[in-house]
Amino acid sequence: MSKFRIGHLADIDKKGARTFLVEDTEIAVFKLSDGSLHAVENRCPHKGGKLSEGMVCGTAVHCPLHDWKIDLRSGKVHEPDDGCLNTYKTEVDGDSGDIYITIAG
């Protein structure tokens, strides 16, 4: 279990995403329109599309390559497609606005 400070709340636009690398894994942190943050592996389970470049609708992102729809809270692919990707716990320091992420393992 390791924890990282990855940036500041203001770094990410609403309905937008930023990416960062931890070891060899690229992770995308999304900010939904309600301001909540969700971190997922930046790789669509279908053909590896970069989800950070996709369109955010509600709590889901549409992969830019083939429009797979993925729920950012659970990492689950919406029907009729099927699949799942890793999600990571995010925390925000209420005072400083710093974003922290916890990577298991």
């Binding site: 924890k3 770094d11 931890v22 942190v29 922290y100």
Partner: peptide, 18 residues
């Protein structure tokens, strides 16, 4: 700068003690 920032990855994750 607000638009431009989205072209770069976050500058790097720094580990924190827990």
């Amino acid at each position: 700068e607000k638009l431009r920032k989205n072209f770069t990855p976050l500058s790097g994750a720094e580990p924190v003690a827990h």
